[in-house]
Design a protein around this nucleic acid. Structure first.
Length: 314
DNA sequence: AAACCGTGGGA
DNA sequence: TTCCCAAGGTT
């Protein structure tokens, strides 16, 4: 059992001063932070988020921006499809929700790029709702403090029930949830937990003598030489230029495996992250012309139809 | 449901 | 140097 009072009291003095936690930050701006924080460390998100919300403070402002500018502003945060989905999400909110972020989990879940974690995080942190919020930090803290396990297992429906059972039955629930996440992020960390400064008086893992884990269940995916790296290189070239880039320039971004490079370029078109101008050069998606590059063509007949499909907005 | 999707910093 | 990991989502 985790004592909510202990945890919230600790958070009050130990929390990091993160810009999206400050007073006056809107639900949309909190949502933007959640998108950026998906699989990306706080330190890298902070400067991008500050520039971003100063430039595009609302969903409609974001939607009005071209996708290319959004992709460029995203910079090297990683997983650029998140930027595209954020742009799509802004468009849906601006068009279908009166420019207001929905406040219920169900509706939030229906938006592009919003899954089970983000929907709950927005409902909780932006709208102060008493809903369990489960991220990787929370799963790890619960695994240790409650179940006495060294690490969280694979995500399961049980995670939600576990956290729901811990949640205070009053309006302090959101504070409890941020605090739980903060504890996992700064004290009960994956690598070297700082148990010496942990505010929890009860911890099943400690009670058992900190049994060691079996190590990573599965080897992490390697990165060097993967399509992800190649796509990253290609996109970096496109990001760095406001004018269309020739095929030859892109070819320089990856020369060791030309077939792989071609396949990756095609996949970027299919994913709607890049597009081709009428004269055959390449740009970030939405950067080819007015109407978001409606005149763009894809490289092959195959990807042409796929790209059209991928680019369609729903 | 396992695999894929970027990137950089720390151990 | 290599490997791990970081407020996940989608297919």
């Amino acid at each position: 059992m985790i004592d909510a009072g202990d945890l919230i009291g600790w958070y009050a003095r130990a929390q990091r001063d993160l810009p999206w936690r400050r007073p006056g930050v809107s639900p949309w701006q909190i949502l933007v932070s959640e998108f950026m924080l998906q699989q990306t460390p706080v330190a890298r998100v902070e400067p991008i988020w500050l520039d971003w919300i100063a430039r595009w403070p609302t969903p409609s402002a974001t939607a009005a921006a071209g996708a290319a500018d959004v992709l460029r502003a995203w910079g090297k945060l990683g997983y650029p499809r998140r930027a595209k989905r954020l742009h799509e999400c802004a468009t849906v909110i601006a068009n279908d929700h009166d420019d207001l972020v929905p406040d219920d989990v169900e509706t939030l879940l229906s938006l592009p790029g919003i899954g089970t974690y983000t929907a709950r995080a927005v409902a909780c942190f932006a709208f102060r709702q008493r809903v369990p919020v489960v991220d990787t930090n929370v799963r790890r803290v619960v695994a240790r403090a409650v179940h006495g396990l060294p690490d969280a297992g694979s995500p399961s429906a049980r995670d939600l029930a576990d956290v729901a059972a811990l949640l205070p039955d009053d309006e302090t629930a959101p504070q409890f949830s941020v605090a739980l996440m903060e504890l996992g992020a700064t004290v009960c960390t994956a690598r070297s937990p700082r148990c010496g400064v942990c505010p929890l008086r009860q911890c099943a893992w400690r009670a058992k003598g900190f049994p060691a884990g079996a190590g990573p269940v599965r080897r992490t995916q390697r990165y060097a030489g993967t399509d992800r790296q190649v796509r990253g290189r290609l996109l970096d070239v496109l990001r760095g230029s406001t004018s269309p880039v020739t095929r030859a320039e892109l070819d320089l971004a990856w020369t060791t495996d030309t077939a792989q490079r071609d396949r990756c370029l095609d996949s970027l078109l299919v994913d709607g992250l890049a597009e081709q101008t009428a004269d055959g050069r390449f740009v970030l998606f939405g950067g080819a012309g007015e109407a978001g590059g409606a005149d763009a063509q894809a490289v092959t007949a195959h990807s042409d139809s796929s790209a059209a499909e991928a680019n369609r907005r729903r």
